[in-house]
């Protein structure tokens, strides 16, 4: 990758995974690396930057997707996707370098953990996955009066889609909505298919009558299971950081 040109430009894209893959396609084709990659809607214009808007092109993105799986391995695709969902700054640039180098060296790229961008991509994936796993447990559904289950979460990373897939596998015959309050998007599932929509398009009815009863029972269970001789709030907070407490039924 040493003969690649660094160009003094800022790429703007629409923030979607396919939009990002389009950038990868263009960079790989022209053998150039941009100075910065930013999302269109959050970018603040700056007179030093020359910006180029990259239109999302599904065909190009699909070619890159197939290319990654064929040439660098599905492991890398997995890394790329989860790293992309993280909320780290400059994630796009690191993943771009990781992929471009990956196309040159092949599956070996994942052994090069001492290269800074490979390590960053791998650790971003790790962070995203661990938050996703944590919320698989800490998410709480509430039964609404129209027999719908509703849950709200405040995650750091954009883990709504993998989280939703976990619950589809688990509650295949249940209608549910998971709402990411930090990003205002909702995962909606109606026992057949799912959609991710903006949360403005959703109105939430009141909770059902049974719900109150089971919430009380759960709080009671939570209180009862505590052994006072072993009190250890630090340990509790380590596993269950306070930022997640707002969505819990049982407030410790």
């Amino acid at each position: 990758m040493s003969n690649w040109k660094l160009i003094n430009k800022t790429y703007l894209y629409d923030g979607s995974f396919y939009g990002f893959l389009t950038i990868v396609f263009d960079s790989y084709l022209t053998k150039t690396l941009p100075q910065k990659i930013c999302k269109k809607n959050t970018y603040l214009s700056n007179f030093l930057d020359t910006t180029i808007e990259i239109e999302t092109n599904l065909e190009k993105a699909q070619r890159i997707l197939n290319g990654i799986e064929k040439n660098i391995g599905s492991d890398t695709l997995y890394n790329t996707y989860y790293a992309f969902l993280s909320n780290e700054k400059n994630k796009e640039f690191n993943i771009l370098k990781y992929l471009c180098n990956g196309f040159i060296v092949g599956p070996k790229i994942n052994h090069n953990l001492t290269t800074s961008y490979v390590f960053k991509v791998v650790s971003m994936r790790k962070k995203t996955l661990s938050e996703c796993h944590k919320l698989k447990g800490l998410l709480r559904f509430q039964e609404l009066s129209n027999n719908l289950s509703y849950a709200s979460i405040h995650p750091d990373n954009n883990i709504l889609e993998p989280l939703g897939h976990h619950f589809i596998k688990r509650f295949a015959s249940m209608n549910f909505v998971i709402c990411d309050k930090n990003r205002d998007i909702c995962f909606v599932y109606n026992t057949k298919e799912y959609k991710i929509i903006h949360s403005q398009n959703i109105c939430i009815p009141n909770i059902s009558e049974d719900e109150k009863k089971y919430q009380e029972l759960w709080k009671l269970f939570f209180k009862t299971i505590f052994i006072s001789e072993r009190n250890n709030p630090r340990c509790q907070m380590q596993f269950m950081p306070k930022k997640y407490w707002q969505d819990l039924i049982e407030k410790p």
């Binding site: 447990g137 688990r170 509650f171 015959s173 505590f226 006072s228 709030p233 340990c235 509790q236 410790p252």
Partner: peptide, 20 residues
């Protein structure tokens, strides 16, 4: 289309005040 499935790695759903 029953309810639930197993998760090989296991999932913790909450932590009580004793950290368990």
């Amino acid at each position: 289309r029953g309810i639930g499935n197993g998760n090989v790695s296991g999932i913790c759903h909450s932590w009580s005040n004793d950290g368990r």
